[in-house]
Amino acid sequence: MTAPAPASAPSHPKGLGTLRVNGTGYDVPLAPDRNLLYVLREELGLTGTKYGCGEGECGACKVLLDGVAVRACQTSVGEVVGHAITTIEGLAQGEEFHPVQTAFVEAGAFQCGFCTPGMILQAVSLLRQNPDPSEDEIRAALNGNICRCGGYFRIVAAVQRASTLLRSAAEAPP
C-alpha cells in the first residue's frame, strides 16, 4: 500500500480534497461514506490511530482537529478538509516527546497500549482547554475513552503529571 502523493496544486480534480495531517497535505477522495479513521489507517498508513468500535463509543480513534480531540470514526473526510489534523504519529516534535507522552511513559500508564494513542490525544486536548484540571475534570473529559485493561488510575496520574510539566514549561523564563 502506498500513500497518495502529497498535494501540490491548490485546485483539485472533481471529488478530491486535501487533508492536512501532521503538517503534510494528501489528496484523497471525499465520498461521504469515507470516514477519517479509515483514510488515516488504510490509505495513509497512519495506524497509530486505532479502531476499537467504529461506533463512537470507545475513543480509540481520537485525533486532534485544530487542537481539539474528535473521534475519527465519526468524522467524514469531507468535513475536515482545510483543517489541521494531528495523529499520535505527529504529536512529538522530532525526537522530543510532548509532555503528555513523557508523563505516560513515566507513569507506566498503559498495559496493552491499544487505548493509549486515543487517551494521549484526548488528554492533550483537555490540557489545552484547561491547563490545570481537577481529578474529576480529568475523569469527565476522558470518560469517552475505554481502557479495557483498567489502567485508569495511572492514566489520571499521567495527565496530572503532564499538567504540571506543561505549566512549569509555560512559566519558565525563555
Binding site: E89, V105, G108
Partner: peptide
C-alpha cells in the same frame, strides 16, 4: 515498549 506505544509506532 513504552516509546513505541506512546508514539503510535507499535
Amino acid at each position: 515498549a513504552s516509546k513505541e506505544v506512546v508514539t503510535g509506532r507499535r
